[in-house]
């Protein structure tokens, strides 16, 4: 037991020591170099606090940055770290948890989806996993006790990290491109801010075809070109809404699990006009309306009957 503790302790110390020596330079916010086409400024900064809270915090820098870093100072990276080396078919990565197993299973699909995405089509190999999922600060929030809005915000931050930054977009662009802010691009969308708080970017911008219903929390990595983005309101605001099979289905299921069936039904927290309705309210109100109309029909018939009867009696009297 003591040996095991000492072993773990020494691994942690070694890892911390190695990472600290890297972060001595890479922890500096202004560590950058002008390189590549156009001599653009590339930052080599890794925020230590961000890394400590990331999913990779337990790794050594050299676990991913494998070659060419044994001496100091080292040259700029010649190879991009291979994410799939760990995240795909790696038994060391499997810790037996359901989420990890699903992630591994999904990885092959994600790769195929990504290769069909607008990002890959436009930027080819210069755009990789790390452009969205910064390995030095990426912290998967799935399974965490976040509110619905927090989950949306977390998901959208992945996209907005680049799309909210003209600098980031300019660094990536391969052809002439006039940067427009997400607000400018979505000016046509009513209640834009509300949509961004309640819907993930990927719900409109990704291709979900072929995904299974229980995969709604995962999104498709096949990001569509802008021409294929959802612009038709009815695709979300209808009973056959794409949202009800995506993030809102997940939200409703989660609400049922956490708050109980009745509360979730009565206080459906996933209100989207046209897509999610309180069935009890509709049932009660429509019953009331139909009963009212039925009552009126009976009453009107009785009036007509009495009117005819009175007229007949009057005619007979004459």
């Amino acid at each position: 037991m003591l040996r095991a503790i000492l072993l773990l302790l020494s691994i942690a110390v070694l890892q911390a020591t190695e990472n600290q020596s890297c972060l001595k330079c890479h922890g500096m916010a202004n560590l950058a170099e002008q390189t590549g086409p156009g001599r653009r400024l590339h930052s080599y900064h890794v925020a230590p606090s961000g890394f400590e809270h990331s999913n990779h915090h337990s790794l050594r820098c050299s676990d991913c940055h494998v070659q060419g870093y044994s001496q100091y100072p080292h040259a700029a990276a010649k190879t991009i770290p291979d994410c799939l080396g760990c995240h795909q078919n790696n038994s060391a990565f499997l810790d037996g948890s359901k989420e990890r197993s699903l992630l591994l299973r999904d990885m092959e699909k994600m790769k195929t989806e990504f290769e069909q995405s607008a990002h890959h089509s436009a930027l080819k190999d210069s755009f990789t996993c790390v452009h969205c999922h910064n390995p030095h600060r990426f912290a998967d929030q799935r399974g965490k006790n976040l509110s619905f809005e927090e989950r949306i915000e977390w998901s959208n931050a992945v996209c907005l990290n680049c799309h909210n930054s003209e600098k980031q977009i300019n660094e990536l662009k391969t052809k002439e491109y006039v940067y427009r802010t997400p607000e400018e691009i979505h000016a046509w969308l009513p209640s834009t801010e509300m949509h961004w708080k309640k819907v993930r970017c990927v719900d409109c911008h990704a291709d979900f075809s072929g995904m299974e219903r229980n995969e709604e929390e995962r999104f498709s990595h096949k990001i569509n070109p802008k021409e294929k983005a959802v612009r038709n309101c009815k695709e979300c605001h209808s009973t056959e809404s794409i949202l009800t099979t995506r993030v809102y289905q997940m939200n409703m299921r989660k609400a049922r699990e956490e708050e109980g069936l009745i509360t979730a039904i009565l206080w459906n927290n996933s209100y989207v006009i046209g897509a999610t309705r309180n069935r009890w309210l509709d049932l009660f109100s429509l019953t009331l309306l139909v009963s009212g109309v039925g009552g009126i029909a009976i009453h009107a018939y009785a009036r007509y009957y009495v009117y005819r009867k009175n007229r007949r009696e009057k005619n007979d009297g004459e």
Binding site: P190, N232, K234, S238, T239, G274
Partner: peptide, 18 residues
């Protein structure tokens, strides 16, 4: 029309109804 919005048979198109 919006509350019972349907992709297939909209009473009024959603944008117009809104």
């Amino acid at each position: 029309s919006m509350h019972f919005s349907s992709l297939e048979k909209p009473l009024i198109p959603f944008e117009a109804a809104s």
